[in-house]
Each structure stands twice: as structure tokens, then as C-alpha cells.
Design a protein around this nucleic acid. Structure first.
Lengths: 70, 70
DNA sequence: GCTATATGTAATATATATTTGGCATTAGGT
DNA sequence: ACCTAATGCCAAATATATATTACATATAGC
């Protein structure tokens, strides 16, 4: 499963650590780390919470196969 | 938790039954029913599979809080 | 009235997301 | 050299998504 580099990048763009993001959305750091690593398959509500924190939408962070131009 | 009427509506627009959608995305009918009923919190991969089947994006079916004009 | 399809819902079982706790590495500051 | 923050990863425990089976209702066609 591929890494989620868009998540990692959006988090970096806001200068938020994995730990901070995790606390903000109410999960543990390991969960955020696993999502970025592509190790699993988070729930939609968690995805929505992450996107809100990073000021992105679901399509921008989790949708695949379209135009993901940098 | 609110019902997902956008999902129900998108499915109706393609004239696909809960059972057909379930088989297409590889889950059971009860799972699709529970998502439409808002009873739980599906995984992002399942959401993506549903959206692909219905020719919609994540934002169109699962994103909340923006402009959802009918 | 009978049969078939579509839907809503419930109980129990299984798979997996998520937590907890821990260890290792890297980079920065003192 | 030491300390701290940030990250990657791992094993075991817990919470919850999902499967399985089943029952009920409504509608449509025969």
C-alpha cells in the first residue's frame, strides 16, 4: 500500500507534528504515523477530522487516480 | 448520526440497489444499509470504492459542512 | 393469495482499526 | 557528551467495522 505523501506534505505545510495532529483529531501518534505510512485504512470520520485540521478536503488528501499535480 | 442521503440519492440516480452496490464494492448489503442509515463510520477505502461505482468523488458523497445545494 | 425484489433492523461472530507501551534513530540546542 | 522533539516500527490488548444469518415490511407482477 502506498504512502500518503499528500498527508505528510499538508501536515508539513502547516508545521504540525504527528503528535500534535493526533491530539487535535483525538487519536494516537501511531495512528497518524500508520496512515502516512500507508499501513492501513482509517475511518472516514477520522479522515474528515484530519482534513479539517489541515484545511484540506477529502479529495485533496485521500482521493486517488485524478490530477494530483504538485 | 445523520443519514447519508447523498449516497442514497446517488445510488438511486444510477438505479442500483443496495445489494448490487454491495456486491460491486465487495461488502454485504447490511454494510451499505448501515452507511446510508448513518449507523457507522466506514473505512476510507470502502468510501472510495462506493464513490467510484457511483461516479462521484469523496467530497460529493462524504464531505460535510460546505455547499450541498441540491 | 403467492412469489420475488428491495429495504430496515437485530444478534452473534470475525477481521481489523486503534490504543498502549516500548525501543531505536535522527537532528537541534546546550 | 547530553537532552529533547520528531519520527518509524513492533507486540499485545481493546474497540469497532464488517460478515453471517435471520426476520419483518412494502411493493409489483402473476
Amino acid at each position: 500500500m502506498g504512502k500518503n505523501l499528500r498527508l505528510k506534505s499538508a501536515r508539513a505545510a502547516k508545521d504540525i507534528s504527528q503528535k500534535e495532529l493526533a491530539e487535535t483529531v483525538g487519536v494516537t501518534r501511531q495512528t497518524i504515523n500508520a496512515i502516512e505510512s500507508g499501513d492501513f485504512n482509517p475511518s472516514i470520520r477520522l479522515c474528515i477530522a484530519i482534513c479539517r485540521t489541515l484545511n484540506k478536503t477529502l479529495d485533496q488528501i485521500f482521493w486517488e487516480d485524478d490530477g494530483n499535480a504538485e
